[in-house]
């Protein structure tokens, strides 16, 4: 029951996100607005709602499963992007390696060294 109550909270914050998205000047996904509002709500009440924690763990663990149906389609539409394959693959492979390198470099410079008690 706790899981279902938590799910209702998530749905409520998603709907709230959809409502607020109508008035925002920029198109922000309803889920993102809901996520930010829920974090604010946790901050305001000084702790997390146990029902929401109960549903969040299985839902986040399911993220990979939820992406999968979208991945299947790429095998069927790959032909449409065949002439772009070179550009797409170099952008993804080189771009990702470059961004990994720059974020590691940036953070090594800016993050204070780990203190022993952490």
């Amino acid at each position: 029951m706790s899981v279902l109550r938590g799910f209702l909270w998530l749905l409520a914050f998603f709907l709230l996100g959809q409502t607020i998205a109508l008035w925002l000047p920029i198109a922000l996904p309803a889920g993102v607005i809901g996520m930010l509002l829920l974090t604010l709500w946790f901050c305001q009440r000084g702790g997390m709602n146990t029902d929401v924690v109960a549903i969040s763990q299985p839902l986040i663990a399911m993220l990979a499963l939820l992406i999968m149906p979208g991945v299947v389609e790429i095998f069927f539409v790959a032909g449409r992007f065949a002439d772009q394959a070179g550009a797409i693959l170099s952008a993804l492979l080189l771009g990702t390696l470059a961004s990994v390198a720059s974020s590691l470099w940036l953070m090594r410079r800016c993050l204070p060294p780990e203190t022993p008690h952490e």
């Binding site: 914050f13 996100g17 889920g31 809901g34 996520m35 930010l36 969040s56 839902l59 986040i60």
Partner: peptide, 12 residues
Amino acid sequence: GPATVALAVPLY
């Protein structure tokens, strides 16, 4: 959609 909202938990 709800899974995105659920990301508030690790964020908090």
